[in-house]
Nucleic acid binder design. Structure first.
Ligand SMILES: NC(=O)c1ccc[n+]([C@@H]2O[C@H](COP(=O)([O-])OP(=O)(O)OC[C@H]3O[C@@H](n4cnc5c(N)ncnc54)[C@H](O)[C@@H]3O)[C@@H](O)[C@H]2O)c1
Ligand SMILES: NC(=O)c1ccc[n+]([C@@H]2O[C@H](COP(=O)([O-])OP(=O)(O)OC[C@H]3O[C@@H](n4cnc5c(N)ncnc54)[C@H](O)[C@@H]3O)[C@@H](O)[C@H]2O)c1
Lengths: 210, 210
DNA sequence: GTATTATTGTGAAATAAATCACAATACATG
DNA sequence: CATGTATTGTGATTTATTTCACAATAATAC
């Protein structure tokens, strides 16, 4: 079982590049092309594939169609993935209005909030009371949830999600969540990302100044 | 020069935890406490510090105040960092309305867009025509920019930013940007994060099922 | 003031990830 | 059908990161 996050992210990137190549009319691809498209080395591409038992044709490269099939299976893209968002504020609202997820086979099935002013059952993506989270998640067999509530509420929401049966959480609140070990958390911490950028901008500036 | 992103992210986490401990009244901290708070090993904490020449007192732990000072210097937090956002749409709007950045000493100085309907010079954070980016960045000595425009516009905006003198870009558009090597890019690709989560949820589910 | 103890700081060791390098081999060419 | 060539697949190597383990040492106890 491969648990190297970077490796899985690369698979996603290969997949995305392959769709682009396919839409350009390409049918076959060499590790070298794919590497260029994604910004890694050709050896890395082949190694990644080798790790997942994906093979091409010696001297013939890879057939894009079947390569995509294999990647999609590994990445769980053979069916539309339904997710829920908790927190219908600024960020939650932006996520609900974003149409880039559908293209990737990711559907926001509903949003949940604690504030009645946000509720809207009639909307394309309904906004429902948080009390209905559990039933909704069970009824729709949802396994992925997005936390877009203030940090003080995030721990509680994480617990509600976990109890409801959600197994993967994308967390935007800038705190560390404690969840059972069978729940995976991916944090998106923008403060940290910016702080990180500042560090790298500073050191690169200093080095050049020398 | 340390260029390990994870290591720098840990420094930020140490810093955040230290503020929390400090506000709780603590004055000293041991690597063990900090490790627990951040979710790493004590050896990792000490090694990270050692890498940056930070030292504490044998048997006495670290004095939180001076530790914070050192971390803040390393992380460039000794002054408020001004950043600009390009793209005043859903995401850009959410970022502008978010007040969590100020707490971290990060100030969104202005937002830029191409659509006149979004312009608003009177707002707390002005929304200005993209043509003014260059002058604004120069006048305010800004080095960090956030890209929140559609993917088709992102490459162009990255170039405009780079030309204007921006040296660090936080990019939300789901594409790979090409920039001069003295510009650092941190990508936040939510599609990828979700796809990644789906993979881990799937494999963990399968493993347990065995 | 000496012994005991807790904690740091850091080389050494272990582990993880990326890259190298080349044998295996399928296709092309004549 | 033999020869040459391009490309894969992967074991070996290198590089990066984390963990270990323990000497150095400062605070505490007696
Ligand atoms: N807005 C941004 O650009 C931005 C940037 C970085 C991080 N974040 C993080 O994302 C999260 C959301 O930010 P935001 O700006 O959208 O906040 P927001 O205040 O606009 O929205 C939060 C929403 O969560 C709801 N909520 C609060 N407690 C809840 C609970 N227990 N259960 C269900 N819903 C609850 C509120 O009613 C509100 O609608 C925060 O943790 C924030 O730190 C946001
Ligand atoms: N909204 C989300 O939740 C979300 C989620 C994931 C990724 N993203 C990414 O973030 C980016 C922004 O998404 P959004 O939903 O805010 O889009 P949006 O369409 O709501 O807003 C985009 C804004 O950019 C402006 N713009 C377009 N071209 C420009 C240019 N050349 N220069 C300056 N401004 C320009 C538009 O006028 C608009 O105001 C996209 O790349 C999207 O893929 C958004």
């Amino acid at each position: 079982m491969i648990t190297n996050k970077n490796c899985i992210i690369r698979l996603s990137r290969y997949k995305n590049s392959l769709y682009r190549l396919q839409s350009l009319g390409f049918v076959k691809v060499f590790s070298e092309n794919l590497a260029d498209a994604v910004g890694v080395t050709a050896a890395q591409v082949r190694k990644d594939f080798s790790l997942f038992g994906i093979s091409g044709n010696r001297r013939g490269g890879y057939e894009i169609g079947s390569l995509l099939e294999k990647l999609n299976t590994i990445l769980g893209k053979d069916q539309v993935q339904k997710v829920v968002v908790v927190g219908a504020g600024h960020l939650g609202g932006a996520l609900m209005r974003y149409n880039g997820f559908e293209k990737e086979g990711i559907k926001i099935a509903a949003c949940f909030d604690i504030d009645p002013a946000t509720y809207d059952r009639a909307s394309r993506i309904p906004v429902l009371p948080i009390e209905e989270l559990r039933a909704f998640v069970k009824d729709n067999a949802i396994r992925i949830g997005i936390i877009a509530v203030p940090d003080v509420a995030a721990a509680q929401v994480a617990e509600q999600m976990s109890n409801a049966g959600i197994r993967g959480i994308l967390n935007f609140a800038p705190i560390r969540l404690k969840v059972p070990e069978d729940v995976t958390i991916n944090n998106v911490n923008l403060e940290l990302e910016l702080e990180n950028l500042i560090y790298f901008v500073n050191i690169l500036n200093k080095t050049k100044a020398k």
